[in-house]
Write a protein that binds this DNA or RNA. Structure first.
Lengths: 178, 178
DNA sequence: TGATTCATGTAACTCGTTACATGATTAG
DNA sequence: CTAATCATGTAACGAGTTACATGAATCA
């Protein structure tokens, strides 16, 4: 079952956002466990509006030269739909890592290529470590009035530790390949 | 780009397999970074055969009451195609974890449901730890004449450590939720 | 002034799952 | 004997990406 709508509703629960904002949030903060494309987000926003689960919120500063962003707000019906989904059982994860697939099939003949792939894999992991640490600090520094960030910080913590694991494992593996 | 063909070719590189065997191998050994369905595997086997990248290998023991399994063997052309893919750049990973998505959106109001989700998540991680350890022992115990298992063991090691991380993180998070 | 990013959207296409069909074999 | 598993396949559907189009705003 398609879950795009719940990602949207979940994000709108915290603040009003445009389709563009939603995509950005997912890219930056959820990249290690989720992704969505514009081709999913924009049509879904239309559907959700039609069904009354979200509504357009006033776009700020349309008087000036500023372009008006189409921001959306969650409705009570939307909140209910989100709640029902939160309670429901989870489908099994889908994961596909082309790099690990290659690693699995690699032989001693391939080791030179694999070293290159590994180096890149490590760099990506290191970048994620930095990104997650930044985002962690950003969240921790903000005064958390509603205690809303506790769970986000937990998920972020897992992402950080996973990225560190990937980085460590890559280093070790590169060393073993000589 | 669709990668089903390379999974098939990669597995056939080590030994002759049927479509059913291929599915089973992926399920058991690659579950933490890959998945394929029969609806992808069987049609792809036909295509690969047509293109000459694989060929049917003699099915053993068709004289007896045994049913004949349709096993396939990789051809030199198939090996070349596999090699070219191994050298090429990797596309970015695709990941979707409904559980982590819910965790990200969770608030203090949801904590009872989240505890349930977390418990299940932890159980699944623990099961994977056991599964990977078993498979690790199986591979290590076999005399490794061709040194083919080194890379597989490395990937398995990452899977194991990831499963352990998930399990630890779940335990910690459950404790924090009280 | 020209390139890049912001911003919203759609159409075509490919990818991937699910449900179904069929029949043999094995375990209890 | 019957339920489960083995085994191969297909058709329909749904999910998801990519390429394209458009235009405003910003940066250099």
């Amino acid at each position: 079952m398609k879950k795009t709508r719940f990602v949207i509703l979940g994000l709108l629960q915290e603040e009003d956002l445009s389709g563009y904002d939603i995509k950005k949030s997912i890219n930056i903060r959820m990249s290690f466990f989720w992704q969505e494309s514009y081709g999913q987000i924009y049509p879904e926003l239309s559907k959700l509006k039609e069904e009354g689960l979200i509504e357009q919120s006033l776009s700020e500063a349309s008087g000036k030269a500023k372009i008006e962003k189409i921001k959306y707000r969650i409705t009570p019906e939307g909140s209910q739909a989100l709640k029902r989904w939160m309670e429901a059982e989870n489908e099994k994860d889908t994961i596909r890592s082309e790099f690990l697939l290659k690693m699995y099939f690699a032989t001693d003949q391939n080791s030179e290529e694999m070293k290159q792939h590994l180096t890149l894999f490590k760099e990506q992991a290191d970048q994620k470590v930095i990104l997650f640490q930044m985002f962690q600090q950003e969240l921790t520094s903000k005064i958390d009035m509603h205690n809303n960030h506790r769970q986000i910080l937990k998920v972020l913590d897992l992402g950080l530790r996973q990225a560190q694991l990937y980085s460590d494992w890559s280093r070790e593996t590169l060393e073993e390949l000589g």
